Amino acid sequence: MITTGIGFLAFIVAFTALVLYLAKKFPLKLYKFFPPILIIYVGTMLLYTFGMWTMTEEIKAVKTALVNNMVPAMVFLMCITCNIKKILRMGPKLLFTFLAATFTICVGFVVSYAIFGGALNHPADAFGAVCASWVGGIQNFLAVSSSLGVEGDILSNVILMININYSFWILILVAIGSLAPRFNKWAKADVSAIEDISKKLDGDTAEKKPFDHLNVLVVLGISLVAVYICRLLANIAPNLGFIDASVWEYIFISVVGLALGMTKLGDLPAVDVISEVMLMLTLTLLATEINILQIADAWLYILAGALILVIHAVLMLPLAKLSHLDLHSCGVASIANIGGPSSAPIVAATYGKSFVSIGVLMGTLGCVIGTFVGLAVAQILRMI
């Protein structure tokens, strides 16, 4: 049984690395629908449940310090990689398709919360965090859940809600790809411009640069300085309704990161690698105090999530008909919201090569707006 801070940190890092190593060494098809990040989360819960460590004051202090500083640094680095100029090159129709998917997902959250909120003891902030994830990605979820104080069993329930529904959704989107000709005929969709847009976007894609220890130190230094400055500003910013210091911190971090992403800092090597390491370790740490035997309401959260996706799909149909949107663009926009930039290219590739770069940029756009949408939806749900 682990009771010291250094022992706890050593085990968490080693366990996370082991799961990722095995996933890379043995690339099973299972990982497409049950990703390593979920295996790490559930595995950590099981290890805590069966007594691998005790949450002593020393361990709690280590965990709190790491999470409170790693999450905003990670959000900052992921925002730096979001080049807004490239996103705008998708054109108005593809941008509309993505935002239509975002809007219908938000409507789904409002309706689902109105139905299930009472039975779930009104977890408005938790639903807002899930909305941030289903518009952007897991980094947006962490930003909103941290700023709104979502933790404990509720945090575990909503993570299961996210991942289980996501796994089924990606299967559905891949399966319906063959229906595109009939759907496009029904919607009177013109798909001739898709390949032209894709070629233009592919021309903007730059190869990843190699990096060394200096690049790593520069990226870490910039991210930590940004967190320090934004936290200072957040502490002196006025409270405006639900926007307190913790919320201001993530707003400032996101805005500064997006602004710097349009400069040469957006091309810094090692940013992706460092932010991914922070993401994996943060998710592992969040699961270290969750007893899996105490998760009583997860099934209801999963059902609420399924209803959100059904409402999203149903509302997208008339929008596609009225705006003449093709099925593949709608599918890519949907998974770019629900799954984020890591999943969008996977589904897009099953539709055709021309959709891959579009999926990447749609997923990136979700990362840009996800935190703000999640905070706004949480506020709306609080009023229900």
Rank of each mutant, 00 (worst) to 15 (best):
A234C: 01
E151A: 09
A143C: 00
S254H: 04
A187V: 07
E151I: 00
G261L: 02
M161T: 08
A175S: 15
A193P: 09
Q139T: 05
L233G: 03
L232E: 11
G152Y: 11
T263Y: 07
I229R: 13
Y250N: 07
F252T: 03
D244I: 00
N163T: 12
L148E: 01
I243E: 06
T205G: 01
I194H: 11
M262G: 07
G241Y: 00
D190S: 08
M262C: 05
F183E: 03
D244E: 04
F141Y: 13
S254I: 00
G261M: 03
I172Y: 13
V255I: 15
D196V: 15
A206I: 13
F211T: 06
L233Y: 04
D244F: 00
A180P: 00
G149N: 09
H213S: 11
N215S: 14
I243S: 00
R182N: 05
N140A: 13
L173W: 04
L260F: 14
A237Q: 05
W186R: 10
E207A: 14
V191P: 12
I176T: 06
R231P: 01
I194M: 14
V150D: 02
N184Y: 11
S156G: 15
I154E: 03
K208C: 01
D196H: 14
I176K: 12
V225P: 13
L201W: 02
S223Q: 10
N235I: 03
L220E: 06
I251A: 00
L214C: 11
S223G: 06
I154M: 08
I154W: 02
G203K: 07
P238N: 02
N157W: 03
K188A: 12
S192A: 15
V225F: 15
I251W: 01
S156W: 11
L217K: 12
F211D: 06
N184H: 10
G203D: 07
M262N: 06
K199Q: 15
I164M: 15
S145F: 04
N165C: 12
G221P: 08
K208Y: 03
L173P: 05
Q139H: 04
V218T: 15
A143P: 01
T205E: 08
A206G: 08
P210Y: 10
L217Y: 08
Y250A: 02
Y250H: 04
L173A: 09
Y250S: 02
F183L: 09
N235F: 02
W169M: 13
K200V: 05
S198M: 08
L233N: 10
L260A: 14
I172M: 06
I159F: 15
I159E: 12
V247R: 05
S145T: 01
S223E: 09
E195S: 13
L224E: 11
T205A: 07
D190L: 10
S198D: 10
K208P: 03
N140V: 00
L220F: 12
S178Q: 09
R182G: 10
